[in-house]
Simulated assay, not measured.
Amino acid sequence: MHTHSDRSRESKIPGRLLLSLAKQNGLQGIGICEQDAFPDETLYAHAAKLRLRLALGIEFSCKDSQIIGFGMDFSYTQRKALEKHFALIKKQMDEIVSLFVDRLHVWDSTVNLERVAAFAGKAPHPTFVLQYLVQERRMFPSLLNALQFIADENLDRDMSLADPFHPVEVVDLIHRAGGIAIWAHPMMTPLERQQPLMAKLVAADLDAVEVVYPYRENGYFGTESNEVLQARTLSLTKNVEILFSGGSDCKYPVSPFDGLRPMLPGEYGITSQEADLFGSVFQ
């Protein structure tokens, strides 16, 4: 329930190919949630041809967190407001990437925005900048090494989105649009804010928490294993009646931070029985 097509800035794979890849990988269903972008609803017809259950949604960038919404039916006013918000995020991301590349240019004069964009094949995300350094320039053996260098040199300072949504605000928006809200990869939220945010989200009737998730492969900066982080996520849900979600955060063919082989849809996820608990979000 957590994959991305090329409508997301960090992914390159067209939606129809992602569905075919999911089918080839033996999945019965898949959830595609685009990063601050509306999904391609024509994919429902292609999924039906493949006899693949499909849920389409949005992964909203929020303050210190990400919230995924599935099964939403926005009003005209809601959609127009979101289109404006997503356009603002795109503009900010373009500025962040430009700033990031300028800082890296000081270390390697061959690194420039044109080359990074050509490598990405689209408007680049900071992840593609790191990919360029590792795969094209061979400056680092892995994305984690590149990420460590960026942190050590403080090259990622002042690179967060301005005025993001509050996660509780997004949960309310998703519910008003008739959807379900999932807190994605909670352990990516700063440790001291996890419990307070969980309490606020539960009070807002959060529907699910993403428990099964490959943190190491997706740039988690600590030393804990995926299993330890998943156990900590479960501890957040103690004494709370809430659904469990999961997914790989697949951005095929982009390789993960911890390793070189691209993540495939279905490598991390939930069972078909668990998916049934999410009701009509799958078609």
Rank of each mutant, 00 (worst) to 15 (best):
M1F: 13
H2W: 07
D6Q: 08
D6R: 08
S8C: 09
K12F: 06
R16Q: 12
L21M: 12
A22E: 01
Q24V: 06
Q24G: 06
Q28A: 10
C33G: 09
T42L: 08
L43H: 03
A45F: 11
H46D: 14
L54W: 03
I58E: 04
D64I: 02
D64G: 02
Q66D: 14
Q66M: 01
I68K: 01
G69T: 07
Y76W: 11
A81V: 04
E83R: 13
L88H: 12
K90S: 13
Q92F: 01
L99Y: 02
L99W: 02
R103G: 09
R103D: 10
V106T: 14
D108V: 07
V111P: 02
V111K: 00
R115I: 06
V116A: 04
V116R: 02
F119W: 09
A123V: 11
A123I: 12
P124M: 11
V129L: 01
V129I: 06
L130P: 01
Q135R: 14
R138T: 07
R138W: 02
L144K: 10
L147S: 15
F149N: 03
M159Y: 06
H166S: 11
V168Q: 09
V170M: 10
V171G: 09
L173H: 00
I174L: 08
H175T: 02
H175Y: 11
I180W: 01
A184M: 00
P186G: 11
T189M: 05
P190Y: 10
L191D: 13
P196A: 09
A204L: 12
V228F: 05
V228M: 08
Q230L: 06
A231L: 09
S235H: 12
F244A: 12
S245G: 11
P253T: 04
V254W: 00
R261K: 14
P262I: 00
G269E: 05
I270V: 15
A275Y: 05
S280K: 15
S280M: 08
V281F: 07
